[in-house]
Design a protein around this nucleic acid. Structure first.
Lengths: 219, 219
DNA sequence: TGTACATCAGTGAACGCGCGTTCACTGATGTAC
DNA sequence: TGTACATCAGTGAACGCGCGTTCACTGATGTAC
């Protein structure tokens, strides 16, 4: 179900050297996305920053949109692997829900901070271009299910009448908040009233309150 | 403090007829935004839909971006007036927090449904163009303060240790969720697990739980 | 080990499409006397 | 009340800029014998 298409957007390279060029192009693009939107970054600009050329770019990607797809694919692969590792039930033996939620939220905040530009670009692309949605949804769903499995093993701690739904919706709300936090610049802090430093704790608090989990002694 | 600039982006019309043209242009643009993004809507397309012409467009707006500014201005004016009316303390004499929050959340869900296209366009514009942020922030802040005043009159009902901050953050989280719900198409429902019909209730529940308000008999 | 050839990778100037913007002109409205 | 003139509003074909994309060419890597 989760799209396995291994970078079929990219013409696979034949020499190691061109694989490096491809990585450099992806890295350059992601770096530039920290400062501007995808449409504001030119192909020539990306190529130059990668120490490459426009021609090389088009030797790897059929068009500019394919670059964003490749970035999405790369991020989703990393995200899936990370979730599988981080949300492995074995890792959380004996842990209670507050501990898990706090850790996950803090981690998600970190990702959104560190890769702000990429996530913003992907989020915007998804809003208007259907071809970006499936992959994005698949990743969210994967993480949501893994987290759900973990929390529902502990459903006794959850007071919400429909724990499975609550876990899914709670996770979605955390994601939604982070997405907005990523898109919103500092101005919106006046509305939010919670600094980025305090965000993980407050977000976890909100999520736990919604689930109906009593704050544990662990936190 | 809230930007009062009365449509200074628009060259004010001298004849009634041209005011009508302007309104038709705004309406046509907003209608087209339901289907596509701002960049995907052409000036000629807007003019045609408004039963007008490209030249007329440029007689009213210095450039295409000014149109989006005008739409933002119009929406913000309506929103401000609506908030002043809807959140007037006199209106809520004797009401408890759950009743207020439920009503506000339901109303916000409705707005985001009815003007999905415009809100999506404004949200995307804000993410990348600083000149859209101030107005957007001012509107959110205005509503947040009005709502805050209303709820903080009832702070006894709030268990959160910092009620003022909690009200602001809770409101912001509701907004964030709605923004994402507006940008996300149906696919994401698999992640969210809450349909648009059930959204108001679940969002209100989450907000109230975060504030630490006991569900009242009123709801 | 060395030479010839084939294939792959890289280059960047030139192209061309799309779309915002302009502008010379027509038509409509209002005002002076 | 009627005519002349000034100003405002509207029109859409033509322009031109920006940027994604192409392509003819050079250089690098690998392979055959």
């Amino acid at each position: 179900m989760p799209a396995q298409t291994p970078l079929r957007w990219i013409r696979p390279p034949r020499q190691a050297r061109s694989q490096e060029t491809l990585d450099r192009l992806l890295d350059a693009a992601e770096a530039l996305l920290e400062e501007k939107g995808f449409d504001d970054v030119g192909v020539a600009e990306i190529a130059q920053r990668a120490g490459s050329s426009v021609g090389s770019f088009y030797a790897r990607f059929p068009d500019k949109a394919a670059l964003l797809h490749a970035l999405q694919e790369r991020f989703a692969d990393e995200g899936t692997a990370t979730a599988d590792d981080a949300l492995d039930p074995a890792r959380w033996q004996g842990a209670q829900i507050p501990e898990i939620v706090s850790a996950v939220v803090a981690f998600l905040v970190g990702i959104h901070r560190d890769r702000r530009g990429l996530l913003r670009a992907l989020w915007l692309a998804q809003a208007l271009r259907p071809e970006f949605r499936a992959r994005a949804t698949a990743l969210s769903l994967h993480v949501s299910r893994r987290l759900g499995a973990l929390l529902l093993e502990r459903r006794a701690e959850i007071a919400h009448p429909d724990p499975a739904r609550a876990v899914a919706f709670g996770f979605w709300q955390v994601l939604a908040s982070l997405r907005c936090a990523v898109l919103e610049p500092e101005e919106a802090l006046a509305v939010r009233r919670v600094s980025e430093r305090a965000l993980p704790a407050e977000l976890a608090r909100a999520c736990l309150a919604y689930l109906g989990v009593r704050p544990s002694n662990a936190d």
